[in-house]
Design a protein around this nucleic acid. Sequence first.
RNA 1: UGUCCGAUGGUGUAAUGGUAGCACUUGUGAUUUUGGUUCAUACAGUCAAGGUUCGAAUCCUUGUCGGACAACCA
Length: 565
Amino acid sequence: MTGMDFPENEKRSLNFIESIIEEDLRNNKNESRVHTRFPPEPNGYLHIGHAKSICLNFGLADSYNGLCNLRFDDTNPEKEDVEYVDSIMEDIKWLGFEWNDTPYYASDYFDQLYEWSVQLIKEGKAYVDDQPQELISRQRGVPTRPGEESPYRNRRIEENLDLFERMKNGEFPNGARVLRAKVDMASPNMHMRDPVMYRILHQEHHRTGNKWCIYPMYDWAHGQSDYLEGITHSICTLEFEIHRPLYDWFLNQLVDEGAYRPRQIEFARLNLSYTVMSKRKLLELVQDKHVKGWNDPRMPTISGYRRRGYTPESIRNFADRIGVAKRDNVIDVGLLEFSVREHLNQIAPRVFAVLDPVKVVITNYPEGKVEHMVLENNPEDTEGGSREVPFSREVYIERDDFMEDPPKKFFRMGPGREVRLKGAYIVKCEDYIKDEDGNITEIHCTYDPESKSGGSGASRKVKGTLHWVSTTHAIDAEIRLYDRLFMDEDPAGHKEKDFKEFLNPDSLKVLRHGKLEPSLKTAKPGDKFQFQRLGYFCVDLDSADKNLVFNRTVPLRDSWTKMNK
RNA sequence: UGUCCGAUGGUGUAAUGGUAGCACUUGUGAUUUUGGUUCAUACAGUCAAGGUUCGAAUCCUUGUCGGACAACCA
């Protein structure tokens, strides 16, 4: 793996999974191998929650010189699709990870799983149940009381064998029969009450086509897949904790005591404030066209963040910061944004862009004169170089940067005040013009020729510094200021409500006439910039008219707005 | 009145019987050609009650609170 930005010398303490692994290593368990896996179901795009799991699984394999498989958990053809398979592989690569060997698929094990099922039937540990779903569910009962055994539970082995084969051969319709493991109907753990191993599903599979019409359930497929791949540490989220006894039960039926076997370890999934991360809900947003696709920049998907301008490094650093534990958590989305700013601050060139322009005329600056001001691209990057920005008699500044009657703590332009136009001159506001509605249409300034940046008189200090764009040289661009899409502060708390009530109506604002400095003319899709005082922006490309379009990745940290609250 | 899991500053996460540390947030200050960045500094924590121990966030007991589990989803 490449590009992890952790200082080598920094001593990192172990999280609880690392502690478990190190103990296994000390005990020489499984020949001291470390082999993890990332097992998404290809039924949606990866989101920021998956990023945590990816960083964990691939990161662990990396730090213990082990391997990490990518395995598609494709046991339910009703929801799955190759589009998702492809996007998942793309997103993992983009995050900077490489999976062991080739991608693996649970569907590659359908034959082996079938064979093992036959073996369990022969051993009297599995049976075919003819009852309808509702009845089976009712017999399972409630967690506080023992369940009731199915009348088919003690069916003859030969009959089970025959029925199971006929299930496989397609002799029965969907839902007619299931194969169940004979575990314990009285177990306080509902998952142990004779769980379903196979259901009948006459449904084409995106990889096995029409070969199968019975498909294994998660519990019957997952641990066995881990075993077949030589996984040592099967790391999953907390909701599978209660499945672990069943995970172990199945393995115990197939594997001798003391032999190699995988071990399931659970951690708390990521919850992000203001962010909905349920695949079901995200799918609904896509299908109902609230967003333009899974990679809409407002989506908390990996591909959405990528398009919005997040970097893989920042997401990996975020994953490292939030840590791993078993306690339920809600991480402030501000921490993700901090991680993004932190990285973008190092790599993104500063440029001038004016989103809400008002014209400034420098009355004592010669008409027609143009000076090319030299500006540092990035003060955080000594090798970032510099560029020339044309300056002339008329420039745009941000409407917010002028106040007719400014309060004391406002450092920017106001009548009679002096400010510096960054990289150029100190100007003084002499006058301004308003239209009949009271809107300011033009500001008149004079400039101090001695104050040119880099010149002998440049040391004079003024309170404020403004960004600007020469009116005759400015280029236009569409600039999208994305806001948080979801208002859902506690995703877990509102699960019964329609989450769409929490959609933020301001989540997409388009400013069609941003004025940009001319160097941006050559910007390419994916290029990232800091628009001074406005935030970090990433070039999207509007496929329709090839106009320059910028997505705001994240606003700057803004203490000015805080001061005014 | 089931089983399993969890509980450390506002939010997260370390300390594995021996100094409760780190990050984000927040406050203050310094630097600054953007009020950003950077740096310094401050505030703030072991759910409760017992027990074991020279010593407990850590081990034990009880309680409280929170989460997960009753799909032919994963």
